[in-house]
Amino acid sequence: METKNIMIVGVGGQGSLLASKLLGYLLLKEGYDVKVSEVHGMSQRGGSVVTYVRFGDKVYSPIIDRGEADYIVSFEEMEAARYLPYLKEGGRIVTNTQQIDPMPVITGASAYPEKLIEKLEEKGAQVDAMDCLTLAEEAGSSKAVNIVLMGRLSKYFDIPAEKWQQAIEALVPEKFREVNLKAFALGRG
């Protein structure tokens, strides 16, 4: 199989590491070669963060380049727009509609762009946008945004839901399991 690319983007501190861990674990179990690339350090202080997940028969490069992402999973609306150039033609964006003002918006140096979802669609992206924060809170924790997003992403994969759930059970500590399984179900819809 040709290598498939999933890019996870968001704001430092939002919990993208669990999402990529889940994908890596699951895809390896499915028998693929997998590479997951994260950036630690400076950008985690509220900056824009990117994680690359690649899988296929044989994966070489640890990173995803412009025009290569089959999926962009975004924890924040504007971050989805920032990484649009990485989306493959006809690729899909799964995004949280939550908006987090970056410092230039807070200081008034720039404005938060409007109607981003429509603009992304105009550019040919298939966009699946949802308010993950509300769903996560419904599941029992605002921290479960990552798993809500994974639930939604799972709809586009041929892997049965049970496998995703098993991966969540394997990776999430006992006391958070229920919340996360609920978040997954809510995201999957």
Partner: peptide
Amino acid sequence: DVPASAALEEAIPPRPPVMC
């Protein structure tokens, strides 16, 4: 050739790291 890609016309405000 590099793969085709799209971008929005408008500039997306940067998101630099900040003090928490």
